[in-house]
């Protein structure tokens, strides 16, 4: 992984890294808890038709951790401010997993700058009964178990930290800590969010890697049912991170949705 291709953005005095590529209408991409590799092919695919802005969340990667930030709400307001600061208009907001949760929290607050919403294998709400865990407890399983649940091809998730560059190991360690900071309890969701989703009146697309065993497709369908008019599509041969496992297909679906075409 290289961080050379990161630009630096300062919002409210908080410095974060971001990947900015392409031209056209803006697409704000919010990464999952495992972070965002600037070399991930999906970024170039998406940027072929849009102005891509893919920030690294505060506390993740090499982005600054503001002492007062400890909820997804903090991140949602931060990115609403980011859209103001960069004067992004007619934004396609795309979030995967934790990034999907942030995107949903933004959309219930204000869609003034958001034209459409894409939530991929998103977390953020409670669907099942209290004794059913909707979202796998990723902090209570081994790495291998996580990879088998999160990927259609679990080999994609494997990392050998002993041979990786120290700077990349540090990024992985910060990503794990930051995910827990924002999502430890209530685990991976905001109990208030589900009852606010009706406020989202913009076109919304759910993309769901159909091999995901971190959050099942049934969860995604229940999530989609809470947003008026939301469309739900699955992506084959992908798990919790369809933007990594099926980058071309992921970008194709997003572009088609932007252009109002059925995929």
């Amino acid at each position: 992984m290289t961080t050379d291709s990161l630009s630096s953005i300062r919002i409210n005095g908080i410095r974060i890294g971001a990947i900015e590529r392409g031209t056209g209408t803006p697409l704000l991409f919010l990464h999952p808890g495992i972070g965002l590799d600037p070399t991930a092919p999906v970024l170039d695919r998406l940027a072929e038709r849009v102005r891509l802005v893919a920030p690294i969340h505060p506390g993740f990667g090499t982005s600054e951790q503001p002492p007062s930030f400890d909820t997804v709400d903090d991140l949602a307001y931060f990115y609403l401010d980011l859209m103001d600061e960069l004067d992004l208009k007619d934004v396609t907001l795309v979030g995967v997993s934790l990034g999907g949760w942030i995107a949903a929290e933004m959309a219930v607050k204000s869609t003034a700058r958001i034209a459409r919403l894409v939530l991929a294998n998103a977390v953020g709400i409670k669907v099942g009964p209290r004794e059913t865990r909707d979202i796998a407890d990723i902090f209570a399983i081994l790495d291998q178990d996580f990879n088998e649940r999160a990927y259609a091809n679990s080999a994609l998730g494997m990392r050998d930290y002993k041979t990786m560059a120290e700077s990349d190991v540090r990024i992985a360690a910060r990503n794990r800590e930051a995910t827990a900071r924002y999502a430890w309890s209530p685990y991976m969701h905001n109990p208030k969010l589900k009852n606010r989703l009706h406020r989202i009146k913009i076109p919304t697309l759910f993309l769901w890697g159909d091999s995901d065993r971190i959050v099942l497709e049934s969860y995604g369908r229940a999530y989609a049912a809470a947003i008026p008019g939301a469309r739900f599509e699955t992506i084959a041969k992908a798990g919790h991170f369809p933007h990594l496992e099926q980058a071309d297909e992921f970008a194709r679906r997003v572009h088609a949705f932007m252009e109002g075409r059925s995929s």
Binding site: I141, Y161, K162, E166, V169, R170, R174, T179, A180
Partner: peptide, 23 residues
């Protein structure tokens, strides 16, 4: 103890975790 419970995120500093991850 089941290994995932031995090192919850944030219990050790990032520096300590980096050392641990690198063996």
């Amino acid at each position: 103890v089941y290994p995932p419970f031995k090192n919850p995120p944030g219990y050790l500093s990032v520096d300590d975790n980096v050392r641990l991850m690198r063996g």
